[in-house]
């Protein structure tokens, strides 16, 4: 049964503003292009037709931080790149979310050395960690669905 029929039967739908805004936000997340390494290849294939991230309202990868809601950190962050990443995060308008995609972005992965930041959560606050080296597109989509659930549950008080 389609939504139109349901609406026609009920006449009116009541909800809270919190839920309506959460629903709208969670279904139109614009991610920022932030491919740093091999995980970016998996991010691209998640975007492409086989896995098709636009099913979840995320088809618009923005090249500018000012137009995006979500930063998918795909790959290892070097110490030299860390200030750039923080700068881009600061330029994103609120509300904003971060996914640490892959082991390197989550905890440094195999690069336990001087050149690589041991987890991007030292630089920016991370909402969802996706494990894998690199994660399969299904894993990234799962992480995105987890993030959507999180956004839907965000209370009004957090917006102030």
């Amino acid at each position: 049964m389609g939504l139109e029929q349901k609406l026609g039967n009920m006449g009116v739908v009541t909800t809270s503003l919190e839920q309506a805004v959460g629903w709208a936000r969670s279904n139109a997340i614009w991610p920022m292009l932030f491919g740093l390494a091999c995980c970016a290849i998996e991010m691209m294939s998640t975007q492409a037709s086989n896995y098709d991230m636009s099913r979840f309202g995320m088809e618009l990868m923005r090249a500018s931080p000012r137009q995006s809601d979500l930063m998918i950190v795909a790959g290892r962050v070097s110490r030299k790149m860390a200030p750039v990443l923080r700068n881009l995060y600061d330029q994103m308008p609120d509300p904003k979310w971060v996914i640490a995609m892959g082991d390197c972005a989550s905890c440094g992965g195999v690069f336990n050395n001087y050149a690589v930041v041991q987890g991007v959560d030292e630089i920016v606050p991370v909402d969802v960690y996706v494990a894998g080296c690199p994660p399969r597109p299904e894993a990234l989509i799962d992480g995105i669905l987890k993030l959507q659930d999180k956004i839907k549950k965000e209370p009004l008080t957090k917006w102030q």
Partner: peptide
């Protein structure tokens, strides 16, 4: 290595010392 490798016996201590953003 710059960071101690985390196992179940030292995971909580490493997590407490980590400088989160």
């Amino acid at each position: 290595k710059v960071e101690e490798v985390a196992f179940s016996f030292n995971r909580n201590r490493i997590d407490a010392e980590k400088p989160y953003a």
